[in-house]
Design a protein around this nucleic acid. Structure first.
Lengths: 299, 299
DNA sequence: CAGACGCGGTGCATTTTCGGCAACGCAGTT
DNA sequence: AACTGCGTTGCCGAAAATGCACCGCGTCTG
């Protein structure tokens, strides 16, 4: 949208921290860029940048303007998508930031199901830990976030919530697999594999362990749940994951059992968006489908 | 904001229903205006106007674009007001649409109180019946609405709610003034003065009367509660109003008593805004003050 | 029924705006 | 002290927007 060109320039300057660099990025001269920005600052009634030796930096007013720009961009995209929608064609794009647990089964199934009905809709999926996922929303880089145990920033609006108990993952023949549920103490007493501190599962485990005056002492700490799932096949160790990221293997090589609720409280898998935002049609519809599917997962 | 000029033109065309008239209003030639709009339609990817003999009319896409424009304008105003706020100067403007009952006592007191603390803030107050008040919000013509018994609550976000019982208004010496509360039947049996059907008070009364197989038969029907209040001084009639619009007169010339809750259910006086909107600082602060004051009224 | 009228839309000349180039002042750095 | 890189400004040509005259078309009117 051409009338937002000045804002695009402002964003470029903010990103690079320098007018000359931004000018090069945007394919114009520094003087032209400078004048556009000065003119806008005058019209707006306040400077947007703090001029520091060696470059510029956004001041608080600039941050607000930039946020307005991003909100405007997203709103225009929404309007365009709604307009396209009323001419009958179901097109659009859904961007979603999610936790790792959704990658193996849940999300691919859901996306495929949606695309089967609306082949014109495309998707982008970003894997983010729970803190980053919310930043994605705030910067309008993603429409939806589906995360386990979000940190709950103010701008996060919950669309749907399902409880998920932390499960223990292990080899099929593991002795603990014989029980319907497992005590945390038993896990800590043997080799275990755990996600790092950024993840909700780890957060819940740390909290529970501290309460019983114990602590996790993982033989392997990683940011990859896929690694966890596969590692327990090779050593007689236990890993942790939430059930939405787990599925019985046909050959019974992997087993998982819930950790007792007496030890570890269930966490929440939450579908959310940026507070107050009106999503593009495609994203809104997909969110509804996700909510329904999550409902079934819980049941 | 200059970059929104095209949108302003679109709005002018939508308002007048004619490009030539709009051009005159906006002080340019019809050709220039026409080309701006055609160019925008091309960039946007869809026509905004339906070309009909004798002029143009917004199509659905145009309505959405116009809504986007209004939302953008209001957001810019909000950003500007927040920027002004962080440089310490408390300036800004609050626009509010309200029911008549707020005019004599509540609103003037509240506005004066707010302005005593923030002299830089100005106000505009529009008196609207409950349906119109919500349209005011939807078109971004008012920031806040304070109405009795609002109707369509779709885009209406409730900020605060206080119950208000319908009261009977009469001369000081009126026989009904001797009771602590009054039955509706007694009112209908004597000359009564009532607001017209657009108002929440009337709505509640009509509903209650119908339930007891009666109906209102006012000697005077009016859209002015001020007229109602003053008329009952001249004839031995009763009028209706909610207590926030009433106050004991020093000389005891006017009296008011609640209608029994067995007859007429209490209505809701509701402070609200457009759903999902972030208000300018001044409006947001004033809304908080109003909410607190309404709390006290209820107590 | 024909002409006048008012409408949206277009070609062309004009005016206004905008961008590129070169240069300046001002830091911090070598 | 020379140098480098920064934001900023004057000047001029390029590009975009505007005004004017005019077209085709439907409606209204005498």
């Amino acid at each position: 949208m051409k009338h937002l060109y000045t804002f695009a320039l402002i964003e470029a300057v903010a990103r690079s921290g320098s007018m000359r660099k931004a000018a090069e990025d945007m394919n114009l001269t520094a003087s032209a860029l400078n004048r556009r920005i000065r003119r806008f600052e005058e019209e707006f009634g306040s400077d947007l940048f703090e001029r520091i030796p060696g470059g510029v930096r956004l001041n608080p007013a600039g941050e607000m303007v930039l946020h307005h720009y991003r909100a405007t961009l997203s709103d225009i995209a929404r309007v365009q998508s709604q307009v396209a929608d009323l001419s009958g064609e179901r097109r659009g794009h859904v961007s979603i930031a999610c936790s790792q647990a959704l990658l193996p089964y849940f999300l691919p199934e859901q996306i495929a199901r949606y695309r089967a009905e609306h082949p014109g809709v495309t998707f982008s999926v970003k894997v983010r830990d729970r803190a980053r996922a919310e930043q994605e929303l705030a910067s309008y880089d993603s429409d939806l976030a589906l995360v386990f145990e979000p940190v709950y920033l103010v701008d996060f609006e919950v669309l749907h919530l399902v409880p998920q108990r932390v499960h223990v993952v292990m080899r099929g023949g593991h002795p603990l697999a014989a029980r319907p549920e497992v005590r945390l103490r038993e896990c800590l007493d043997q080799p275990h594999v755990a996600p790092d501190a950024r993840y909700g599962v780890r957060h819940l485990l740390d909290f529970a362990a501290r309460r019983m005056r114990r602590q996790l002492d993982p033989v392997l700490e990683t940011e990859s749940f896929e690694l966890i799932r596969h590692y327990v096949l090779h050593e007689n160790a236990v890993g942790f994951q939430i059930p939405i990221g787990l599925r019985e293997s046909a050959d019974g090589s992997v087993a998982f059992r819930p950790v007792s609720e007496r030890d570890v409280a269930p966490g929440s898998l939450i579908l959310g968006q940026l507070r107050g935002r009106t999503l593009p049609v495609a994203s809104a519809r997909f969110a509804m489908q996700l909510a329904a599917a999550l409902q079934d997962v819980a049941a």
